[in-house]
Design a binder for these strands. Sequence first.
RNA 1: GGAGAGGUGGCUGAGUGGUCGAUAGCGGCGCUUUGCUAAAGCGUUGUAGGGGUUUAAAUCCCUACCGGGGGUUCGAAUCCCCCCCUCUCCGCCA
Length: 423
Amino acid sequence: MLDSKLIRETPEVVRAAIAKKHLEIDLDAILAIDASWRAQLQEVEALRSTQKGANSAMAALPKGSPEFAAKVAEMKAVSSQVKERDARLKETEERFRTAMLSVPNLPHASVPDGRTPEDNVVFSLHGAHDEPRPHALPHWEIPGFDRLFDFARGAKVTGAGFPFLVGDGARLARALLQFFLEEGSKAGYVEVSPPIFVNAASATATGQLPDKEGQMYETTPDHLYAVPTAEVPLTNFFRDEILDESVLPVYRCAYTPCFRREAGSYGKEVRGLNRVHQFDKVELLKWVHPATSYDELDKLREDAERLLQKLQLPYRVLLMCGGDLGFAQAKKYDLEVWAAGQKRWLEVSSCSNFEAFQARRAQIRFRSKESGRTELVHTINGSGLAVGRVQAAILENNLESDGRVRIPEVLVPYFGRAHLSFQ
RNA sequence: GGAGAGGUGGCUGAGUGGUCGAUAGCGGCGCUUUGCUAAAGCGUUGUAGGGGUUUAAAUCCCUACCGGGGGUUCGAAUCCCCCCCUCUCCGCCA
């Protein structure tokens, strides 16, 4: 959510920023609702003030007196007016809130112009992704893959896109998680194990609701949502709190399984581990002082990149253009790992600065030492990393002539062996 | 799941229909006293929205907020209803 003052006072700035995201928002309609809200608010507040004044006067009067009775009669009219206008005011307020929730975050000045994924800028390129790998296969075609990643039985037990990980498949996932969390701790992120169901208020604060409702699994009868990413419970940790400035920046990391309905996905995009309904991920998250948020975003991106470097996987960093930025992001980098068998890039991390967009919805503030006032923090997050697709990349890039997969050196202590076997 | 007790400001804790945004204590901040520390005394102390003034801020005015939502009433922290959460006992259980 944006600051309503920003829209009120500099609508042209907001208009230009929204255009950069290639979205259509009727700002004039929002401004009109805002104007009528303020007019209604002043009316109601004036009536309330009258009520309060009368109340003080009545407190001093004897209860049975004619003056008292007269006041009661007089105030009855005011009371019914307040009720009626307050109801209208609340209605307007709700309309305004709904309209404001439809306004996207503004892209940062450093975000490149562009409309589609093709317009994203390749920010950096690492490793030799174009080096020939004669044994490479799409991971789902590797002999024995189905034994370690059992999609058929997962489909029987739950549904499509819920694979069982068996034997070395499960072992590789666990090794990666352990590695990611250890590296996160070393980089200063305090490990958190959050709830994996959240309520509607939390999902709204991080922006999943209302616009991405169909992407989450919802439970009955309690109406809790299975988290699509640890970002949701983690960001909400400090919801409705005022932090001491001295605790900033706060670094946290968390592993959770992530649940995504992925309605509408199809084809090659979703083969094998490319896109599943449940996958493991470690999320990195920061709450920072607004003045430092872009430096902190770069540092977080580097923390995520380091994981791919240590795993010795070829990858690239994309700087997302305005049109491919998410609704809530002010700036976003995607980390994409090279999958040598499929000969394509797979997104394994998305590192974003939300500025105050999430913090305003979630009311996460700090008390500024300088001004003594409360200010919204900036939130930054990114995967560090998504396990399923990193697994896919390891299987495809490290497949050897004997049909085994070489485990990256840094992972050997966690995995326990130097090779993964499909037997 | 059953029964009971609760939820008030940063914390503890008063307040059962009317000048209550709310007694008091602690903590925080400021000042005074003091060689320093400690202690004492005095003062101060939340959040949000709107308006006015201003280059802006501060100040000023108004309104809301006593877990959340609704109701009763001229008037609700206080009475009624629903929901959430915490604690105690019982039941169940990894």
